[in-house]
């Protein structure tokens, strides 16, 4: 890209900066505001008051939003969903991208067709099925649906590095007399690490943000996840913006932290082969 007119790189950097601001500014604003008392936040004449800096909103989180409990619940649900989605998606990806059999295309299409059905449509029947099988009002009900809606797309997300390995490797190995399992080990094992990162991150994020099912399938307070806890702060007669912004920051934080750590591998995983 060196052979561009001189102005272009500057322009591009400016545009990149603008893009990062569009994404980032709302969050920065949210973080700044979480250190302000509600009385300042709702005052049309005062946007921000540096001298009113306070940690009070965060101090109130444990008692007024039961925050530690719902944070733990969210973590458990997201981690468990991730643990199930990973093997399911890895196996399916291998099946779809590295093998040939009649019906394979149908399998692939079925994985995409999942997204034809809106969650709302499935709400009532799932409630019934779950209550019949004793899964209702447990984390398992959320975990099951998180896997349902994240694993199929994870398969597609992994296509990059599954297709990046030349098929010749397997064929050559087969000719050398390697068994199925040996081939598998040679192909699948190297793919496991990026697969875990990609599927894991995607499922974790999906589970962390899931709202609809969590709002209906859980009855016990003690089981509720973060989005539901946050909803409790939003829909009341009076919205406590200070408390809410602190809760929002703390909800975003774990997953942003995870992303800061694993995000690079996620991006690399999705962007395929290159890091192999």
């Amino acid at each position: 890209m060196a052979a561009r007119p001189l102005a272009a790189p500057v322009m591009r950097n400016l545009l990149t900066l603008l893009m990062l601001l569009v994404i980032g500014l709302p969050f920065i604003w949210m973080i700044l505001s979480s250190f302000q008392p509600t009385s300042v936040l709702i005052n049309p004449r005062e946007l921000f008051r540096p001298d009113a800096f306070t940690l009070e909103n965060y101090a109130r989180l444990p008692s007024e939003a039961n925050f530690l409990l719902i944070l733990r619940n969210s973590l458990v649900v997201a981690l468990a969903s991730t643990a199930i989605a990973i093997p399911l998606a890895l196996l399916a990806a291998y099946s779809v991208y590295r093998t040939r059999y009649r019906g394979r295309q149908t399998v692939y299409l079925l994985l995409l067709v999942v997204y034809v059905f809106p969650g709302i449509l499935l709400l009532a029947p799932l409630f019934k099925l779950f209550s019949m099988s004793g899964v209702l009002n447990t984390w398992l009900s959320l975990i099951i649906m998180n896997v349902t809606f994240s694993a199929p797309f994870s398969v597609w997300l992994m296509r990059g590095f599954f297709t990046s390995i030349p098929h010749g490797i397997e064929e050559a190995a087969a000719i050398d007399g390697a068994t199925d399992m040996q081939i598998l080990r040679r192909i699948i094992v190297p793919l496991t690490a990026p697969g875990i990162v990609v599927t894991g991150t995607y499922t974790f994020v999906y589970s962390w943000t899931e709202f609809l099912f969590a709002s209906v399938f859980l009855i016990d307070d003690s089981l509720k996840t973060l989005p539901i806890g946050l909803e409790g702060l939003v829909t009341q007669y009076s919205i406590d913006w200070g408390l809410l912004s602190a809760a929002a920051v703390m909800t975003a934080l774990p997953v942003v932290a995870l992303f800061a750590f694993a995000g690079r591998y996620f991006v690399e995983g999705v962007t395929a082969g290159a890091s192999k």
Binding site: L91, R98, R100, L122, A151, P152, D180
Partner: peptide, 30 residues
């Protein structure tokens, strides 16, 4: 590669069963 056809079906089975239970079944009810 014909030998891997069996493997392919085997590996696709878990997710297909999973989706049958969580999508197809409630869908039929709907």
């Amino acid at each position: 590669v014909p030998v891997r056809a069996r493997l392919g079906r085997l590996f696709a089975a878990p997710i297909m069963i999973w989706l049958a239970l969580t999508i197809a079944l409630p869908l039929g009810y709907c």
